[in-house]
């Protein structure tokens, strides 16, 4: 008996999900952030963000196809986090780090918030 473990399966699946997103295939929700629109899959959003998990497990909200985020959320910060959800790569630029962190707090993505904190501390110290 043995088990074959495909070491790149998780990244292959994520790559394919990101290709489905970029081609708008089976995307089922539009996230509005200050009039900027982002198409995505509810399941991926739920898997990565506590806020979206709460929204789409709510029987009254789960059928919503357009979600308006808080006007204080920066679209650029949201774009960085949405790309992270679909690629596992978090782009951290000095100019965006605070808005990414604040958006991660809002979206309840605690591990990303911790990483942003560490990044800010390390850049302060350097």
């Amino acid at each position: 008996d043995s088990c074959i473990q495909f070491t790149r399966h998780a990244s292959d699946v994520l790559l394919n999900l990101n290709r489905l997103r970029s081609r708008d295939i089976l995307t089922d929700v539009t996230i509005l952030v200050n009039r900027q629109q982002f198409r995505a899959h509810k399941t991926v959003l739920m898997a990565c963000s506590g806020l979206f998990y709460s929204i789409f497990t709510d029987s009254l909200k789960c059928n919503m196809n357009v979600i308006n985020l808080d006007p204080k959320v920066d679209p650029e910060g949201f774009a960085v986090l949405l790309d992270f959800m679909y690629t596992s790569r978090l782009t951290l630029k000095e100019s965006l780090i605070v808005s990414v962190m604040n958006t991660a707090i809002y979206l309840q993505m605690d591990h990303v918030v911790d990483t942003c904190h560490r990044f800010i501390k390390s850049s302060d110290s350097s």
Binding site: C3, R8, V13
Partner: peptide
Amino acid sequence: YEGGNTIKEMGRSIHEIPRKE
């Protein structure tokens, strides 16, 4: 997975969805 050995397969695991049609 219980028992036996685990063989690591490094190649692709699934088909690749094209970027654009």
